[in-house]
C-alpha cells in the first residue's frame, strides 16, 4: 500500500514539475526578450525608417519592417479568408456531408498544416520565377497565404461545426436556402470563432520569417506598389542580429520585443473579441 502511495506522489510531483517547466520556459522567453529589448527601444525605433549607415549603428528605426509586416500579414490574412471561409462551409453536413471529396479536402488541409513554411517560401519563389516577378509584397503575401490558410481553415471549421443543427434546420424549415442559412445563421452564430480564427492566422502570419525570406525581399524604404520588395519584422530581427555591431544587435532585440508585443496584443484582442461578439450567439 505504501509503495502505491509513494508512486502516486512521485509521478504527481513529476507532472507538476513538467507543467511548471513549460510555464517557466514561456515566462523566461518573455522576460529575456523584454529585458533586452526595452533597453534598446527608443521612439526613433518605431517612427523612422533606416537612415544612411543604419546597419553600422547610425540613426534610424524599423518602421519599414513594422509597416511591411503589417501589410504582408493583412494582405495574406485577407487572401486566406477568401479561401478558408468557403472551405469550412463546404466541410459541413449541409454541403459536403460525409462525401469522399470532403474527406480529401480535410486530409489536404491537414497536410498543408504540416508543410514547413520554408517549403512554402521555396514554392513561392519558384512561382515568382515562373511568372518573371522578383521578390515583392505580392509574392510575400502569396507565400504567407499558404502558411496561414490551413491554420485559419482548421480553426474556422471548428467554430462553424459548433453551430447547432436545430438552428439550421429551423432556417431550412422556413424555406431558407443553404446560402441564406449560412449567411444569416451560421456566419452570425459562429462569428466569434471565425474572428478568432482570422486573428490566429494573422498572428502566425506576422511572425513567420521562412516563407517571406525569398518571396518578399527586404528593403529600407516603404513599398509603393504591390510589386515592390518589402521589409518584415522577423527578418529585421534576423538581419540586424547578424551584424557585428552591438548597437545594431541591440536594435534586433528591440525589434524582437516589438514583434512579441504585436503578437501578444493580437492574442489578447482575439480573446476579448471572442467574448464580446459571442453575446449574439444562441446557446
Amino acid at each position: 500500500m505504501r509503495r502505491r502511495a509513494v508512486e502516486e506522489g512521485f509521478f504527481r510531483a513529476l507532472m507538476v514539475l513538467a507543467v511548471a517547466l513549460v510555464v517557466v520556459g514561456l515566462l523566461l522567453i518573455m522576460a529575456i526578450i523584454t529585458a533586452k529589448g526595452v533597453g534598446s527601444l527608443s521612439w526613433e525605433m518605431i517612427t523612422q525608417a533606416p537612415q544612411g549607415g543604419y546597419y553600422l549603428g547610425k540613426s534610424g528605426g524599423v518602421l519599414n519592417a513594422i509597416l511591411g509586416s503589417l501589410a504582408l500579414a493583412v494582405g495574406a490574412t485577407a487572401l486566406a479568408s477568401i479561401f478558408a471561409f468557403p472551405v469550412c462551409l463546404y466541410l459541413q453536413q449541409d454541403y459536403a456531408g460525409q462525401s469522399r471529396l470532403a474527406s480529401f479536402v480535410r486530409t489536404s488541409l491537414d497536410l498543408l498544416w504540416g508543410i514547413p513554411s520554408i517549403v512554402y517560401g521555396a514554392f513561392g519563389f519558384t512561382v515568382l520565377l515562373y511568372l518573371g516577378m522578383r521578390a515583392s509584397l505580392l509574392g510575400g503575401m502569396i507565400a504567407l497565404t499558404l502558411v496561414e490558410l490551413p491554420i485559419m481553415a482548421r480553426a474556422m471549421e471548428e467554430a462553424v461545426r459548433m453551430v447547432s443543427q436545430d438552428l439550421k434546420e429551423a432556417s431550412y424549415a422556413m424555406g431558407g436556402t443553404r446560402w441564406e442559412t449560412m449567411r444569416k445563421i451560421v456566419l452570425r452564430q459562429a462569428l466569434p470563432g471565425i474572428l478568432t480564427a482570422v486573428l490566429l492566422a494573422f498572428g502566425r502570419g506576422i511572425g513567420d520569417a521562412a516563407s517571406v525570406l525569398f518571396t518578399a525581399g527586404y528593403t529600407d524604404s516603404l513599398p509603393r506598389t504591390l510589386l515592390d520588395p518589402v521589409a518584415s519584422l522577423p527578418l529585421a530581427v534576423f538581419f540586424q542580429l547578424g551584424t557585428p555591431f552591438p548597437e545594431v544587435q541591440g536594435r534586433a532585440h528591440a525589434s524582437a520585443f516589438i514583434l512579441l508585443v504585436i503578437v501578444l496584443i493580437i492574442s489578447v484582442v482575439s480573446r476579448m473579441m471572442g467574448a464580446k461578439v459571442s453575446k449574439y450567439s444562441v446557446r
Binding site: I33, F238, I266, S267
Partner: peptide, 18 residues
Amino acid sequence: DVLAGIPSVVHGLFGVLL
C-alpha cells in the same frame, strides 16, 4: 496558446541570448 504563437525568430533570439 501564447507559447504556440510566439514567432520563431523570437525563440531563436531567446536561444542566442540565454
